[in-house]
Design a protein around this nucleic acid. Structure first.
Lengths: 198, 198
DNA sequence: GGGTAGTTCCTAATGGTATTAGGATCGGGG
DNA sequence: CCCCGATCCTAATACCATTAGGAACTACCC
């Protein structure tokens, strides 16, 4: 009788595949057990409970995303880095929608404290340093860029852009350009705004 | 024997309360039935199934949100309208987090086709008209503004800003200002960008 | 006024989910 | 060679959604 080779890592990886295929809500211990040809309770040897499994997928996603972003902005700065940063996100959502979904929720303490979470903040900071933004402004800018990309990708994912023209693709480029515009003029924004009002 | 006064509307309203209190995932037919002092199957008289109940909450949320936005931008334009538009969203998330959550997902066809969905698009358009943006650009601008606000509010909701300073509140103002900057310079953005490069 | 039809709630039953308890089986180390 | 721990199993409990079919109440019609 050959015992299936289960592992915490394998279980979480399978969960991530299920998420990408059928949505994060379909990540269920029963489904994963079935896919391994194993009974549900057997999974409890490798994973504390369903919440831990889901948090594991979140940490996996954070890791993979951080690596992609790192690769995408390596050796680039300014606009090029921003484009790479965005493309890394968008590519990840397209290839791994379920894992991305796992990031759009309150995660458990383990996931929040994961090194990968800090890593993503760090690479984002690196992009903004290229624009000469530092101090508290960098936090604001990080949040603005993160919000815009995250929001666009989620709206696109849930189909908000599906029923109108032009294609979301074009709006994505406009979004990146708009972000570049904001970042590039971060420090003279006040001056321009004043000029506008006069 | 006094029968509880159940109604489709009442069931959905109760569902919305449950969502706001315990999260959208806690919206369950069993929980709603309990809160009415009624057995679960009794709800099927008023609601087709769980999915229909959830879609009902989504439509309710769309309606309430559209009304708030309408009130917030009435008689305003430009920056003031943008501030009101944002405040309407942010206030709604704060007061009704579960209903907001109901908007962050693939909704059923009924919900997508709801008049309220079009109404929100319309009021957003009204804000952008104040900036003199029209045609395809207005679609792009709508998506950019929607993405940024939506993304910020979701990241704030899932706690992404909770573990760093400064307070999210400040970043929110920066975000609104950045959006105003983008919208106000929508048409001379190309010129400014060129100047920047020279 | 009494029967009747429709509405609304009920109980009963099925099947899917997570989770715990405790038993069997296989491997490696004394 | 035997024991022990790891890994998987079966059995059981407790939720959940959903369907089938019965009872009671309301309103209406004759």
């Amino acid at each position: 009788m050959d015992r299936p080779q289960l592992t915490r890592t394998a279980v979480i990886a399978r969960g991530a595949e299920v998420a990408d295929t059928s949505g994060f809500d379909s990540v269920t211990l029963a489904a994963i057990a079935r896919s391994f040809g194993v009974r549900t309770p057997s999974l409890y040897t490798h994973v504390r409970d369903l919440a831990a499994l889901r948090d594991g997928i979140t940490v996996l996603a954070l890791d993979e995303l951080a690596e992609r972003i790192g690769d995408a902005i390596a050796g680039r700065s300014g606009y090029d880095a921003l484009v790479g940063f965005g493309a890394a996100h968008r590519g990840y959502v397209e290839e791994h929608p379920g894992r991305w979904e796992s990031l759009q929720r309150h995660a458990g303490a383990d996931a929040v404290a994961a090194p990968a979470a800090r890593r993503i903040v760090r690479v984002t900071d690196a992009v903004l340093l290229g624009y000469g933004i530092s101090g508290e402004d960098r936090t604001h800018a990080t949040r603005i860029v993160g919000s815009a990309l995250n929001g666009f990708l989620n709206l696109e994912r849930i189909g908000s852009f599906a029923h109108s023209t032009p294609r979301a693709e074009q709006s994505w480029h406009e979004l990146i350009d708009a972000l570049h515009f904001v970042l590039a003029h971060w420090h003279d924004r006040e001056r321009l705004r004043t000029k506008e009002r006069s």
